[in-house]
Amino acid sequence: MSLAPTLLPVRQQVRGSRLVWICASLLAFIAIASVAGPFLVDNDYRSTDFDNIFLPPTITGQHFFGTDDLGRDLFVRTLLGVRITLFVAVIASFVSLFIGVIYGAIAGYLGGKVDALMMRLVDAMYALPFIFFVILLMVVFERSLLLIFIAIGAINWLDMARIVRGQTLSLKQRSFVDAAKLIGVSSFGIVWRHITPNLLGLVIVYMTLTIPQAILVESFLSFLGLGVQEPQTSLGALVYGGTNHVQSATWLIVIPATVLAVILVCFNFLGDGLRELADPKSKT
């Protein structure tokens, strides 16, 4: 008889899930706004207007968030940045999900020496300063959105692979898998009907944590001028643009930086909250 598992007090759980709910709604709002917003104002993201450069934000005027050094509307550009940032992050997360789940599930299901070798590789890659390789890649090949997807996916799959592998390994050792074997369920059937459904919750939870990481990498590259190219933009690129005018036009950095921070914080809270709800024991 062991100590009763100390569940989170109910009150805290409600608060936790309320936070999850707020973050999810906020993210949904930002995402919808980024798509619908451009239809509500008649500025576009690329038209320059040299008579109206460095206009500060205003509620009544034509440019809610003001204009940049070329007189382009920051509101529309921020929405575009959100769109591209989210798009890149979600696609890249799917890339990492795809690689990570397959790699992790194979390592976990096969186990033994194959697993040991595959995980050694992951461990070795885990500690590499990956961004340097990504930048090397960017230098060598033409910069493109595709390359960014691959680069981000290539970094982020490691986490997913580790988690999926660990879960697969522990599921495989549970006797319901043995029971399925004895019934005569095929290997495919075991993976499909018995392992995968039990991985799903975890994968979705970790996906919400992978997205902010992907956003970070994308905006990092864009900030360095190695990501999305003008006149297209992303939040990272906008922040970079803002750094050049920190002293004169603070809104150019403060607005995109705030939007980026809000998105990242929301995703992290969402992921953390979901993880705690899914598995009260893992609170890292």
């Binding site: 990272g236 930086a257 990242l264 953390d272």
Partner: peptide, 22 residues
């Protein structure tokens, strides 16, 4: 800490310049 892991350096650093230097 949650803010710290969420907000990237390239956002924090320019804002620090804005506040503490400018």
């Amino acid at each position: 800490a949650m803010l710290g892991i969420s907000v990237p350096i390239f956002v924090v650093a320019p804002l620090m310049v804005l506040v503490f230097a400018v």
